[in-house]
């Protein structure tokens, strides 16, 4: 009997592999090939023209990247930006989803307003912000000088690195928090309300209800939201590049390397380093959360 089972299992595995083969082939083509090609060119001096020969230079591109002080500055800025944006946008989404997870008049309208920043094309929002904070005629100058009277000379908003970092962070949080809000709302709406009613009867506080009922339910979603948002924010480019030249995140550093200096070999080396870094970071986050879950 066991022999027959083993035989059947082996056959099923083969058939399962056959069924999976198109997906595996697709993954190999779409992910495996570019990844390997990227590793190859990261060890080469690559000319822009594909008809010219590339020169194998070993680890020179990696050494140059690690010797470049701008790379470390960029890593620091990106890490700070990722922590701030991912942390606050997730927290804001979570708080709002809990707070609004009840029936009230105009709920649909409120939901629509909340997700507006997420669904409007980024470029429209970016140029609106640029007009708002324009040094000459921006409406923020009017508020700061004429309405609030905080100062008689408006700051150069996107020109000062510290202010630019704060503004870009606020922009990213505002743009991205609806994703967390929608993810958490979906889970909260599917939860059985009787759990909260039972907790109320037992005299549980709001914090206790969150800790014992809400948090265990949303934890898998929380891990996914944090993981995905960390990856997306870590590689952010468009929003930062179009808003200011004073926040040199890794996406901008990488773009400049590839398209301003046309050094594709070094750009590939940077992307490999970043891949390893972000992969390790995500694994660490998942491991920590899963460990807590097991405990």
């Amino acid at each position: 009997m066991s022999k027959k089972k083993k035989k059947l299992g082996g056959s099923d595995t083969k058939f399962a592999m056959l069924l999976l083969s198109p997906s595996i082939l697709l993954l190999a083509l779409l992910i495996g090939y570019p990844l390997i090609y990227n590793i190859v060119i990261s060890c080469q001096d690559v000319p822009l023209n594909p008809n010219l020969p590339s020169e194998f230079i070993g680890l020179k591109n990696y050494i140059e990247v690690f010797k470049d002080p701008e790379f470390y500055k960029s890593v620091l800025v990106t890490l700070s930006f990722t922590v701030v944006v991912t942390g606050i946008s997730t927290l804001l989404g979570l708080i709002l989803s809990i707070f609004l997870n009840r029936p009230f008049f105009g709920k649909k309208l409120v939901n629509s307003i909340i997700i507006l920043s997420y669904v409007v094309p980024a470029v429209c929002l970016i140029f609106t912000w640029r007009y708002m904070f324009n040094n000459i005629y921006g409406i923020m100058n009017y508020f700061v000088i004429d309405v609030l009277g905080i100062t008689d000379k408006a700051p150069l908003w996107f020109d000062q690195p510290a202010i630019a970092f704060i503004l870009v962070s606020i922009f990213a949080i505002w743009k991205f928090f609806p994703y967390a809000y929608l993810s958490f709302t979906a889970i909260l709406q599917s939860m059985d309300n009787s759990l909260y009613e039972a907790a109320d009867i037992d005299g549980a506080t709001s914090w206790e209800k969150f800790k014992v009922i809400t948090y265990p339910a949303i934890k898998p979603t929380l891990v996914t939201v944090v993981s995905l948002r960390t990856i997306w924010v870590f590689y952010i480019y468009t929003e930062v590049y179009l808003l200011t030249k004073q926040v040199n995140v890794l996406g901008v550093y990488l773009y400049d390397m590839a398209f301003a200096t046309h050094d594709f070999g070094k750009a590939a080396a940077i992307s490999i380093v970043l891949f390893v870094f972000i992969f390790a970071l995500i694994m660490l986050i998942r491991k920590k959360v899963l460990k807590v879950e097991e405990d």
Partner: peptide, 10 residues
């Protein structure tokens, strides 16, 4: 000139 980083449109 105008304050800050000015571009073509400014």
């Amino acid at each position: 000139s105008m304050p800050g980083s000015t571009e073509v449109a400014d």
